[in-house]
Design a binder for these strands. Structure first.
Lengths: 244, 244
DNA sequence: CGTAAATTTGATACGTTTCAACCCTCGTGG
DNA sequence: CCACGAGGGTTGAAACGTATCAAATTTACG
């Protein structure tokens, strides 16, 4: 039962080039080198694709900030993920061939779009490409596991802190400034993502401000200053294991 | 900037065979036909792979029931997913090359294991294979989004009901009986997965039993009888949109 | 069979939601 | 230029649901 007639990969395997730690950089580099893509500029609140529409292309974020949103039966929409430079958008359409989420730009940005068919073709000639896309999807899986875990175990304050920490770490990974970050999100959106109400997010942020872990910018309370990333990190870690 | 020198997939594209609705069946069929795999039988509570160990192989569930578990800092472990015949295990190791979860059998079962390298190779000759694996990962992503949504918006009772419903639907998809299902899980494990305490799961199940939506089997309270799947489905839907 | 573990159920404590009032900013139009 | 209204944000008080603690009961297993 365990002897397929086709003998593809049965021979000796030479070692494969490992993927670098910085997935986002590899994605952009490999895409530019090996895949024919179309560029697309997007404005604030512009939709990349819409829930229910047929899926046929993936989008690599070249710059900007994006979210995907679930439509809950009530008609309201709930953010289900946030994405930065080098992240991929559109995987939700793969299983069924139709998108099960919408994707939207949180500020202006640019996408490199490629037909899914074409990407699969291209990856035949460049196996590293497929490893990369697999790694990108799997990373999103891992991130979701983290969020589920934090939603299941942390208090509202800790969830908000953890959310900001992850956001800042994503920016840091990409070489962007982390001492002052613009979330482009309302309290209600943050809460919807974390499974708490907007008032609770507001209270959590106020308490975090009280401890000095974060500060608000004068003009917009959506811009958060983080004096010390390590301070934030320690707060989250303390919240994760209060009982030892 | 958008003219890669390599011309892989630039030509006309013939239509690709669509993946059938039943992913699990395709996975088993394609695997058997095109990939050299090794069989492995597992006993109850046997570990498939362990968190922290290097990753190099994926496992397709040929029979049985499995869970993956996260290790939370406290030392306790938290289930992060449940998997059935035709599902894949091991994706968590792809991004970093090391497993970030452990996988464990909930009862006896069988796995078809394949080195990740070899699978990628095999998919060069059989592109449908790669579409399939991508669809499998993306499905896990979609499932995680569902769970996050339910953890963020539903009451404990509704979460438990939703959990059982999904479990039953997974079994139904695979042609297994759904009128009496054995979860092989303690109340604490269910609660840990859903983000509530074991006592709350117990209460939720008691209340569901009270409404007649489910019943317990005499001998083991881990075996749940579902007189009407539609009844359960309606209950979950009512819980999803209480307002209006 | 006896002991440890799991489950159920109750009473209370705690945290988040809900409802409400108020403030602030910003864009619009008088 | 300022008045005005709308939407987002902050904060308070009460209601609600779940966690926590505890005890009784059942089940699992050597």
């Amino acid at each position: 039962m365990n002897t397929p007639s086709i003998a593809h990969g049965a021979g000796a395997l030479e070692p494969v080039r490992p993927l670098a730690h910085l997935l986002w950089r590899d994605s952009l580099a490999l895409m530019k080198q090996f895949v024919p893509f179309t560029q697309r500029k997007v404005r604030v609140n512009e939709e990349v694709y819409v829930c229910g529409k047929p899926f046929d292309t993936l989008h690599l974020i070249s710059s900007g900030l994006f979210k995907i949103v679930n439509l809950v039966p009530d008609g309201r929409e709930q953010p289900a993920g946030f994405f930065f430079k080098g992240d991929w958008l559109g995987f939700d359409g793969i299983p069924t061939g139709s998108h099960t989420c919408s994707a939207m730009a949180l500020d202006m940005g640019e996408l490199w779009s490629v037909r899914y068919d074409i990407l699969l073709r291209a990856s035949v000639g460049e196996p590293q490409l497929m490893r990369l896309v697999m790694a990108a999807i799997s990373s999103q899986l891992a991130r979701h596991r983290d969020v589920s875990l934090s939603m299941g175990t942390l208090s509202a304050d800790a969830r908000v802190a953890d959310f900001i920490l992850h956001w800042a770490l994503s920016l840091e990974e990409r070489g962007m400034r982390t001492d002052e970050i613009d979330l482009h999100l309302s309290r209600a959106e943050i809460g919807s993502y974390l499974g708490v109400r907007s008032e609770s997010v507001s209270r959590a942020l106020s308490r975090l401000k009280g401890t000095g872990i974060i500060q608000f910018q004068e003009s917009s309370h959506r811009v958060i200053r983080i004096p010390s990333l390590d301070g934030l990190r320690e707060f989250v870690q303390r919240s994760t294991e209060p009982s030892r």
